[in-house]
Design a protein around this nucleic acid. Structure first.
Lengths: 211, 211, 211, 211
DNA sequence: TACTAACCGAGACGGTACGTCAGGTCTTAGC
DNA sequence: GCTAAGACCTGACGTACCGTCTCGGTTAGTA
């Protein structure tokens, strides 16, 4: 986060650890009520019961603060080991959708992404704090599926890494688009149909009735 | 857009049609240079050679203006009739990625989406101006594929509509996530692999039937 | 006002004479309700049922318009021939005070005077339309007093003119200051005591002759 | 002026004392150059090297600011103890006229008076800051004259107070009207003749030649 | 226990942009 | 060629936040 460099000061009053938590929590609360554009750092400071100075001493600005506040939300995600790849995908999709459905995640995440298009440092911070952290889910899911024999073992490490990225973009992107752009709910049915496409492709979308 | 109601005024000086175009163009230019958060309406007005009041007379605020400015970008999209469903998908994906790669689209689109999470009217405007307008591509693509025999004819209209929405979320979402969140380029290779997943599913080497 | 030059146009639609009166009346009404600084020409136009263009075609701006609107008020003044100089003075003072007590006169007059300190043309217009027009009262009053034998006949015309100006400044100034700066009412008693000072000077109990 | 209430804040950064002086000085300078109606608070702030917000933090608006800026001018006035009532009056009249001749006093004073006709709080502020402060001159002058035996000692306190107000209105009003409305200079001769009227009344304006 | 350095709150500071409003000009259509 | 209507450009308004700064006061952790 913003850890003082290791070889740093030992003297003087230490920073209040409680303040950090209060500020991030206040940031999320403000995002819920006001959304990104009407969120002001002065207001966050007030909500957190903290001086504006304290806030600026720890974060460079609104963007950095919101990235940290939002990143915490995604750490809740975990892969359910449900016995089949399809069920694993469905489970993660529903969890991810549940987080994205929270207003603080919605407006916070999209806004920092928008800002990151003009700010390389912010982009890196987002990748490090949010995106790359959650790729672990795809990796774990694939490992489980391979153990079950649902997926073949990977041959080339390069190919495998590219596949992970692609899957992540498809799954996360679909949920993101459904939730934020289309602004439609992610239901169990939808998650099931998404998993089906991923595993079987389009032509089977409407399989012929057996018999 | 903001057409005066049909049964409207005949008197007074009419609005300059050129101003609209100049303002939208200036908005895109400002998005490129400054990004969403540093874009100011005063600056847009100056670039467009127009008074700030003229701008406010026609749009309610930054959000509405940017939606209109960005929406125009997506009207360039068209479905290539390339002979196979896979090639059609790949073509559209590349076109969509090319638009999303433009800085004005990137920051503009994400920002208004972020704002729309707290503004129902804005959400509706985005859907009407951007999302629903482009679903035509999925519809056309399916029709072509059905004509070619690559996809079965649809049975139930409800099921079919839900499928269109799903496909749209998956394709648009994947490109969006790749471009903006992962911040990686959409190459021909990537588009090809995406199309492959959509048509055949994940297990490239079809899994052995359980038994 | 801004009379078209005598040898002027005969073609086209003639200007509405009623509009002039309506505009000046509307100006006074707006002065009453809003005061000078919040009076707007657009509002005056609306009140008068006239387009803003019409207003600007006839007056150069707010200042000129208000001078004309206020000047009309002072034309009501007339010298009462009440039989004695003291009573004449008292009568004029009360009349003048009554006019100055009207809100449109108060704020209008002071404001244009304030503006005139930076605008010679406006200063001239005020003198011509308001100040010099009312000096007639002093002249008439003196003539009556001389006829009655209360004042000696004037010897030198220059001295006499200077005396008129002085009296006018003293009387009008006293009422003005009382009404606007001190913001106290001009009562009959006050007017009487003012007349007394003018005629007899300060030491009510005549000072003992020196020596 | 705008002193924080005595039992007030001890925390936070204290207000810059220098800013107050710079702002009032800048206000007077702007009044000289631009006059009341073209004076803008933004311009005053710029001249004073101060942010607009600082200005609004201390004064409620243009009116209040100008009252304070102008009031300082009148504090220069002082009663000359010149040995006779006539000479005292003449001296004060000339001093007062000298101040009123300054453009910042002219336009500033008249404008706030005009505004005060629609604003009771402003009227009170003017009285407190300007009018009542200068009545001291009349009081001192009368005391001196009584000490010299030129005026009888006052009998009734009420009568005396009313007399002070009247004298003040007459003297200040005459100078005001001469300077601003008539727009003529106050010369020594004029001041002398004004003093004469006050002391001896009108009929003596042109005394019969002795003998 | 006392020192002391860094922390903390409050809030004023110079700025920038906001969205609104009035001033004046202009461009229509209609009389 | 006037009129009403209203769009136009300009520029000031008063407000809200920004990020910085200067205060007085607090709070560990040594010395």
């Amino acid at each position: 986060m913003q850890s003082r460099s290791s070889a740093s000061r030992a003297t003087g009053r230490p920073r209040s650890a409680a303040a950090d938590a209060a500020i991030l929590e206040a940031t999320r609360a403000a995002l819920v009520e006001l959304g990104w554009s009407k969120l002001t750092l002065g207001d966050v400071a007030t909500r957190a019961g903290v001086a504006k100075t304290t806030l600026y001493r720890r974060w460079a600005g609104k963007n950095e603060l919101v990235v940290d506040a939002v990143a915490e939300l995604f750490d809740e995600l975990e892969l359910p080991d449900s016995g089949s790849l399809a069920a694993d995908i469905e489970g993660v999709v529903l969890q991810f959708a549940a987080i994205l459905d929270r207003p603080e995640a919605k407006s916070g995440l999209m806004a920092v992404v928008a800002e990151s298009t003009h700010d390389g440092a912010l982009r890196a911070r987002i990748r490090a704090s949010i995106v790359d952290r959650q790729k672990r889910l795809v990796l774990e899911g694939r490992a489980h599926a391979q153990a079950r024999g649902e997926l073949p073992p990977e041959e080339d490490p390069g190919t495998a890494a590219r596949a992970v990225d692609l899957i992540f973009d498809v799954v996360a992107g679909a949920v993101l688009h459904r939730t934020l752009v289309s602004a439609e709910p992610v239901t169990e049915d939808w998650a099931c149909r998404l998993a089906q496409i991923l595993l079987q492709g389009l032509p089977e979308t409407t399989p012929p009735p057996p018999g």
